[in-house]
Design a protein around this nucleic acid. Structure first.
Lengths: 160, 160
DNA sequence: TATTGTTATACTCTATAACTATA
DNA sequence: TATAGTTATAGAGTATAACAATA
């Protein structure tokens, strides 16, 4: 009867169904808005991450679940468009850090506004109390984001 | 102060942040599980849709937000692997309907089990009551799925 | 020797344009 | 004439393998 062999559930299967459907819907919105600005979903995501972080290539790749080589191409294309820049870490001369440019930051802002605007009809179907409640219920499910370290402040004592 | 110029909000921006993060997380899981079976995210999704529907190519393309030509390739690859078949509509000789095969259905079942298993640690962080509540709060945000019409029953009177 | 990135290669995903067949 | 699909083509996204530089 039940979709699988858990004792009593049903709540879990319904929840997963809702989460998956909502995920596809959100991705649809992000994909469309990105496409209107010639950005893939991944590039949109990279912009959102690099907006307040300067991650190393390898950390970013790991976070995104992509191979290093994939990231090389992704960053190269964004760099060619003037949205991102590569910098070298003072601590490790092998490492490359990804930095957002002013143009990239402006585009990211515009993108975020559009996302809020397009999603507004949906989120508006809940009242503020329900929105807060939904946000709270979602929180325990979320994995932690990349630590938001804007820049390495310490001059890497011991290495230099 | 506020991320944009709404009157009082904050609840909306936090909610969107949560929805976007949860979407990327769910997509990450689906992408990984799909990849383990040599399926792209889109193909995984198509299988899930066609599991209990026989949509026409154009309807499926519209629902997925893809061009018809993109879907042709997608279905062709899945057909080559024996997961789907093409059929012709009795009502409209131009139309092609997409049908799942037994192998496709079995794979879809296995995929769904894996998704539930991988997502279990996350959903398990909520108790059943919270899961039901979260599902309910998500519901108003969701667009309707493709109508689940398994097969055209009526022999298309007037055309034949 | 191990790690960080890049490059070369190959395949999938995707859209645009041109085409065929049916309505 | 318009709609449903396919094919050809081209560009982006992706991973694997081989490589250079640094740790």
């Amino acid at each position: 009867m039940a979709p699988h062999d858990s004792p009593d559930d049903g709540t879990t299967d319904d929840l997963i169904d809702g989460l998956v459907r909502s995920a596809f819907q959100v991705m649809g919105v992000l994909t469309r808005i990105g496409a209107e600005h010639d950005l893939s979903l991944t590039q949109l995501r990279v912009l959102g991450i690099v907006r307040d972080r300067c991650p190393r290539m390898s950390d970013l790749a790991a976070f995104l679940g992509l191979d290093k080589s994939t990231l090389s191409g992704l960053i190269a294309r964004a760099e060619r468009r003037g949205l991102l820049t590569r910098g070298t870490s003072p601590e490790d001369k092998r490492a490359v850090v990804v930095l957002i440019t002013d143009a990239g930051r402006e585009l990211t802002e515009r993108l975020n506004e559009e996302i809020r605007r397009v999603l507004a009809p949906a989120t508006g179907r809940l009242d503020p109390e329900q929105r807060a409640q939904l946000t709270q219920l979602l929180e325990p499910l979320l994995s932690p984001p990349l630590p938001a370290v804007p820049r390495p402040e310490r001059p890497a004592r011991g290495t230099a």
